[in-house]
Amino acid sequence: MTIAANPVANVGRATLEFLADVGRLCIFAAQSLLAVFTPPFYFANLGRQLLSVGFYSLPVVGLTALFTGAVLAQQIYIGTGRFNAEATVPTIVVFGITRELGPVIASLMVAGRVAAAMAAELGTMRVTEQIDALTTLATNPFRYLIAPRVLAATLMLPILVLIGDIIGVMGGWLLATTVLDYNSIGYLQRTVDFLETWDVISGLIKAGVFGFIIALMGCYQGFNSSGGAQGVGRATTNAVVSASILILAANYIITSIAFTD
């Protein structure tokens, strides 16, 4: 039966496959969460992941935050200038960074680094039978490989985003004081005057969720990869793409459900 001959069957098959995929991912997520909370815990593995997800992502997150903050200040200056409200630039910059751009851009950058690395490493371990070898050595691969990665990413993303927030605000301040003739103290004063704790906290909560998504997609794609080098390459691409899309979708859902005030 060709595809053209029976479009209905084809749509049905694609739908079923999609639902099966979603189901597999949900089971995988549940198993990962369970593994995070059941001993034995592999603290050395967790430490390695904390370092690789957190510390080594600092340059990427810092640089993107710096440029994002600067360009945000520039654009908002132009926009607010149209109705003589340039004084609101610091407030809008910090609001935009803490609530949206900080968590989203940092997470997308980390997704590119970390989800890809996790998918490639676990994918290679899968195709070289190292994951099977773990199992035969009476070690649960979810606890040994996946729990440390998921936990590390969920813990480190909020910290990275907090640092990114600070650097982003600094980027805006740097541009405002050097290019746009803002007064340094006045700019910083304005930044904190209208900032609420919740602006920062809501962004950090998002970051935690995004961190979970990044590790989950990296591990899921890598763990289920097959077909040699090509399969590992496919897993890596899928991990980054699916993590990025899920981050943006989750961002919208979280914002519209929980952070509308």
Partner: peptide
């Protein structure tokens, strides 16, 4: 599985 040992074809050593 603690009672089993397995030698994998490619070795499957943890690199």
């Amino acid at each position: 599985l603690r009672r089993f040992g397995m030698l994998f074809q490619g070795g499957a050593l943890f690199d």
